[in-house]
C-alpha cells in the first residue's frame, strides 16, 4: 500500500480534506464511544442524569408557567408540553455547550496527533444524541401514561430531528472554533444558553406570544424546531407554522456552511494557539 502524503501550507484544501474526514469516521465513533463510556460508566448515575434533568426541569416549569403564571397549553397536559420542548432544547443546549469546550478539552490529543479536527465537535453531537434518545423514551412513556397517541405527523419527526441536529452541529462548530481562538467564549456561552431557554418555547407554547411580536420571536431558529417537534407528536393539539421550521432549516444550512469555513480557518492554526 503506497500513497503520498503531501504537506504544505495549503495542502488541506478541497477534496483531500473531505476524503480525510471520511477516513477518520472510525475515530469519530471511538471518540463518541469514549465519552459515552465515561458518562455512563457508573451506569445508574449516568442514565439517571439523562432522565432526572428533564424530569425535574419539567416539574419546575410546569409549576411556574402552568400553575403560577397560568399560561395556556391547549388541550395538552402542561408537563407534556414542557417535556416535549425540553427534549429538543436540552439536546441543542448541551451539544452547543459541550462543543464550545471540546477543542480545548481535547487539546492533549490535538497537539499530539493529526486527524481532521472536525471530528471533535461532531463526536459531541453523537454523545448527546444518546441522551436525546433516552429522554425521548421518557417522553414516549409519559404520552402513554397520559393516553395521548401520536398523530400521523410523527412520520415527519425524523425530518424535524434532522433540522435539530443540523442546527446543533453548526452552532457547535462555530462555538468550538470561536472558543479555541477566544477563550472568553466559554464564559459567555453558558449565559447565552440560559438566556436562550427563555427565548424558546420550552416552558410555554408559542401561542402565548403576542401576534405583533411573533416575527421577532421566530427569529430564534429553535422556535421552529421545537414547535415542529411538538406538532409531529400532537398535531391537532398544537398549532404550527411550517415556515418557521423552513426558516430554521435555512438558518442552520447557513450556519453550517459558514461554520465549516470558519472552523477550517481556525483549524489551520489551532495547534499553535492551544
Amino acid at each position: 500500500m503506497t500513497y503520498e502524503v503531501f504537506i504544505s501550507p495549503n495542502a488541506r484544501r478541497g477534496v483531500r480534506y473531505w476524503r480525510e474526514l471520511w477516513a477518520a469516521r472510525e475515530l469519530l465513533f471511538f471518540l463518541a464511544w469514549r465519552d459515552i463510556l465515561v458518562r455512563y460508566k457508573q451506569a445508574v448515575l449516568g442514565v439517571l442524569w439523562a432522565v432526572l434533568r428533564p424530569v425535574l426541569t419539567t416539574i419546575v416549569f410546569s409549576l411556574v408557567f402552568g400553575k403560577i403564571a397560568k399560561l395556556p397549553a391547549g388541550d395538552l397536559p402542561y408537563p407534556l408540553l414542557v417535556l416535549s420542548g425540553m427534549i429538543p432544547w436540552f439536546f441543542f443546549a448541551n451539544t452547543v455547550g459541550e462543543s464550545g469546550g471540546s477543542l480545548v478539552n481535547n487539546s492533549a490529543l490535538i497537539t499530539k496527533v493529526y486527524f481532521p479536527r472536525l471530528v471533535v465537535p461532531v463526536s459531541v453531537v453523537l454523545v448527546n444524541f444518546i441522551d436525546f434518545m433516552i429522554s425521548s423514551f421518557l417522553l414516549a412513556i409519559m404520552m402513554l401514561v397520559s393516553g395521548i397517541a401520536p398523530s400521523f405527523g410523527i412520520l415527519l419527526l425524523p425530518g424535524v430531528v434532522g433540522v435539530l441536529v443540523l442546527l446543533a452541529v453548526s452552532t457547535g462548530l462555530w462555538m468550538s472554533a470561536l472558543n479555541a481562538k477566544f477563550r472568553d467564549v466559554q464564559f459567555v456561552l453558558p449565559f447565552m444558553i440560559t438566556f436562550g431557554l427563555y427565548l424558546s418555547p420550552v416552558g410555554f407554547s408559542t401561542t402565548v406570544v403576542p401576534e405583533k411580536w411573533l416575527w421577532l420571536f421566530q427569529l430564534n431558529p429553535m422556535v421552529g424546531v421545537i414547535d415542529g417537534f411538538r406538532w409531529c407528536l400532537f398535531s391537532d393539539a398544537y398549532p404550527f407554522n411550517g415556515y418557521s421550521l423552513l426558516y430554521s432549516f435555512l438558518f442552520s444550512v447557513f450556519m453550517l456552511t459558514t461554520g465549516i469555513a470558519y472552523f477550517r480557518s481556525v483549524e489551520r492554526e489551532i495547534v499553535d494557539v492551544l
Binding site: 500513497y3 502524503v5 503531501f6 504537506i7 501550507p9 495542502a11 496527533v113 493529526y114 492554526e269
Partner: peptide, 29 residues
C-alpha cells in the same frame, strides 16, 4: 509536528510516501 501533520508549515512542502505513524507522546488519548 510538521512531519506528523499536527501543525501546518508556513512555507515549503513535504512529500511522504507510505503510511505514517507518529508518537509524539506515549499514551496520547
Amino acid at each position: 509536528k510538521l512531519l506528523s501533520r499536527v501543525t501546518e508549515p508556513t512555507t515549503g512542502e513535504v512529500r511522504i510516501r507510505g503510511r505514517v505513524a507518529s508518537l509524539l507522546e506515549v499514551g496520547t488519548g
